[in-house]
Amino acid sequence: MDNSFTVQHLGRDPSDHAPLLLSASTMLDNKPKPFWFLNVWTSKEGFLDVVKQCWADDVPGSPLRVLSIKLGKMKNSFKRWSREMFEDIFMASKDAEREVMEAEVAYDNDPIEQLLLKLQKARVKLRNTLAVEEGFSRQKARVRWLKDGDRNSKYFHSLVAERRSRALIHHI
């Protein structure tokens, strides 16, 4: 089993402290991933175009066969579209975090208005990517009863991690 440990310096937004994130990962199971419709997709421009394009295709056969074929096409179209539009949700938030840290350092070194605007734009981008990541984590954790304002992402991640560990066969 391969283990990997990393330490990451996080940005100070909204606090003035600079926290550290210690990550430990292990290589687990390489089984194929099931298709999940992500609610986050509906908030992105172009979502309805993908749906319309898939349902507009004329497919011969019985109604259930037509439905099955169109749903299969939609699944593949959503996978491609999601990779193009969202890329890697978690990587995007790490990149946004890095941009905020770089903008903070630049503004700390030279506090001019132009660098302050750049810092504010980077923070807005970070908040947007974190909102997408939180929505993804909330859905993966299958927690629907929490209010949208509750940002207990550590709780969501722990639920997802627990569900994944229960789904694996560790030894026989």
Results as ranks from 00 to 15, higher is better:
Trp36Ile: 15
Val51Phe: 11
Asp49Ser: 10
Pro32Glu: 14
Pro19Gly: 03
Leu28Glu: 15
Phe37Asn: 08
Asn39His: 01
Leu22Trp: 07
Ala18Tyr: 15
Cys54Thr: 10
Asp49Ile: 05
Glu45Asn: 06
Phe47His: 01
Ala18Gly: 12
Lys31Gln: 12
Lys52Glu: 09
Thr26Ala: 11
Thr26Asn: 09
Gln53Arg: 12
Thr26Gly: 13
Asp29Cys: 13
His17Met: 00
Asn39Phe: 03
Leu22Ala: 02
Val50Cys: 00
Pro63Met: 00
Pro63Arg: 03
Ser15Leu: 11
Phe35Arg: 00
Asp49Phe: 07
Pro63Tyr: 01
Lys33Trp: 07
Ser23Asn: 12
Leu48His: 06
Pro32Ile: 06
Val50Gln: 02
Lys31Tyr: 02
Pro60Trp: 01
Gly61Arg: 05
Leu21Ile: 00
Cys54Ala: 13
Trp41Gly: 07
Thr42Cys: 00
Val59Met: 03
Trp41Pro: 00
Asp29Met: 00
Pro34Val: 08
Asp29His: 12
Ala24Glu: 10
Trp36Thr: 08
Lys33Arg: 11
Ser25Gly: 10
Leu22Lys: 06
Ala56Arg: 12
Ser62Cys: 02
Cys54Val: 05
Leu38His: 04
Ser23Gln: 13
Lys52Met: 10
Ser15His: 08
Leu48Val: 06
Gly61Met: 02
Pro34His: 01
Ala56Thr: 09
Glu45Ile: 03
Lys31Asp: 01
Ala56Lys: 12
Pro19Ala: 03
Phe47Gly: 05
Gln53Ser: 14
Asp29Ser: 15
Leu20His: 13
Gln53Lys: 13
Thr42Leu: 06
Ser62Asp: 15
Leu38Asp: 07
Pro63Gln: 10
Ser15Ile: 10
Ser62His: 08
Gln53Thr: 12
Ser62Asn: 11
Thr42Ala: 00
His17Ile: 11
Asn30Tyr: 09
Trp41Glu: 03
Val50Trp: 02
Trp41Tyr: 11
Val51Thr: 07
Pro19Ile: 09
Pro32Leu: 07
Gln53Gly: 04
Lys44Phe: 07
Ala24Phe: 15
Leu22Met: 10
Trp55Thr: 07
Pro19Asp: 00
Pro60Arg: 12
Gly46Glu: 03
Asp49Ala: 04
Glu45Leu: 00
Asp49Asn: 10
Leu20Tyr: 15
Thr26Val: 14
Ala56Asn: 08
Lys52Arg: 15
Asp16Tyr: 12
Ala56Met: 07
Val51Glu: 02
Leu22Cys: 09
Pro19Leu: 04
Glu45Pro: 08
Gln53Pro: 01
Asp16Val: 09
Pro32Val: 05
Lys33Thr: 11
Leu38Arg: 14
Asp58Leu: 14
Gly46Ala: 06
Leu21His: 07
Asn39Leu: 02
Leu20Ala: 07
Thr42Ser: 04
Gly61Phe: 05
Ala24Cys: 13
His17Phe: 05
Val50Leu: 05
Phe35Gly: 03
Leu21Glu: 14
Gly46Ile: 04
Asp57Phe: 13
Cys54Trp: 05
Cys54Lys: 01
Ser25Asn: 11
Leu22Val: 09
Ser43Glu: 08
Thr42Asn: 00
Asn30Leu: 10
Leu28Lys: 14
Asp49Val: 01
Leu38Thr: 07
Val51Ser: 06
Asp16Ser: 15
Leu21Asp: 01
Gly46Arg: 05
Lys31Glu: 10
Met27Ile: 11
Gln53Val: 01
Phe37Pro: 09
